[in-house]
Design a protein around this nucleic acid. Structure first.
Lengths: 238, 238
DNA sequence: AAGTGAATGTAAAGATTGAGTAAAGCTTGC
DNA sequence: GCAAGCTTTACTCAATCTTTACATTCACTT
């Protein structure tokens, strides 16, 4: 899978630099600009997968950018703002933002939100494709094959028996192969609860998945990214 | 394909207006009303393909509307709510809602959910039409033969006597052979009601079907996929 | 290098849940 | 009323999920 491209629009040069570093390191391609006017121009290029948009900016502020992009604009937008103002949040969402994060935020939180949005969008487009192309129930990545219709799993053609939870976790990791998926997302999506401080369930499930695959593959398919989450390897020499 | 009709029940006029605009633009016919009482009346007209139902409302709130519609009511319902309350979600789903979305939500997300629900029911109804209008009234999968014209069933040529409900369940499983069929679908299609939390009818029917086939086949034809549903095996060496 | 603390791996115990099924209860058509 | 069939109840068991406990690894610090 290709790297996702992010457009960062924020007049705070210092923060921007930090974010570019961090997100690049997390596998994104980041382009940034420092005011709404040029942000808008870049946004119209339609080449980004996600836009991080600061509210307080010279020339055009974040809301104005959002409004200018209009409701037809497809690329998801995550608003950043200095205030934790609830009204601002509602206003942003009504104008078509996909999520909202108040400064100062933790970079992991940002990462989680970005992934949540990309994930959501992915689902939407997949659904559309499914609608158009009919049944597309088989997902294959790196010699592992999932059949959603039967919930069967094979590794190098060998059948593997997974539990429901294991299957769901693997499915998400494979859907986002090449991207880090946080435990928060796995917990919310699969276990239907927020990740609590000492909740080790996800770790245990991942451990069990790995053990079941172990006899059939030489190299690990699921990589741990300490402090960030898990990552299903694409299998190509990156 | 005809435009789908959506009934929106929400007392927030501003939001309602936005949604009507957006959904109309997306090709739906949207009718809206602003309280539970009138919503209920409109819902009884049975002309809608989907109902969007707000929880917090004057006169009758969303839960009360759901309860009033009852588990026999067929039109799918998507609940909207101000709170992201998990308990609310569970409660709504238990009362027969088909999905749940917390405000504020992004319009794309709403669209995705709506399409997901419509697609789900579409698959089912298409399948039924096949059953009814299908040219060849004999369906054979994995040595089990159904004759839709006479409703006779044989297993390895041995006649089996099934009740009406058993026959319908088996017919659906066989039509979908090689695919998991959820209990929700079986319940809606065969028993004409939404699956309630402790409803074991489907399980019992499946158990009875299996018992009747048991003397005539070595291996199970109907596989249980825990937490997901039942699966009629194709019979080929997978 | 060695030490430290936090994050992760994982076996095993404990708790929970889903499903199978016998049997009782209920409905419906005759 | 009765028989056939559907639903509910109740109990069981096994699958599976969570928690616990300890081992290990990793990123830093000293």
């Amino acid at each position: 899978m290709n790297k996702k491209q992010i457009l960062l629009i924020d007049d705070d040069h210092e923060l921007a630099e930090l974010l570019v570093d961090y997100l690049s390191q997390q596998g994104f391609i980041v382009q940034c600009c420092f005011d709404g006017q040029s942000g808008l121009e870049l946004a119209y290029q339609n080449k980004f997968d996600l836009i991080l948009l600061d509210v307080m900016m010279p020339k055009l502020n974040g809301f104005e950018v959002l409004k200018a992009l209009g409701s037809e604009y497809k690329t998801p937008v995550l608003m950043l703002t200095a205030k934790g103002d609830h009204d601002d949040k509602v206003r942003g969402l009504e104008l078509g933002a996909d999520d909202y994060l108040a400064k100062p935020f933790h970079h992991q939180e940002l990462l989680a939100r970005i992934q949540a949005i990309l994930r959501r969008i992915n689902i939407v487009t997949q659904q559309n494709q499914q609608t158009i192309h009919g049944e597309n129930s088989i997902l294959t990545v790196n010699n592992i094959e999932l059949n959603h219709a039967t919930r069967e799993v094979t590794c190098h053609k060998n059948p593997i028996i997974l539990t429901g939870t294991e299957y769901q976790i693997l499915a998400i990791l494979m859907e986002y192969h090449g991207q880090i998926v946080t435990k928060e997302i796995l917990s919310t999506e699969v276990l239907n609860r927020k990740l609590a401080p000492f909740d080790r369930s996800i770790d245990v499930h991942v451990s069990n998945i790995r053990r079941k695959f172990d006899p059939y593959c030489e190299i690990e398919k699921i990589k741990t990214v300490r402090g960030a989450g898990y990552l299903f390897l694409t299998g190509e020499s990156s």
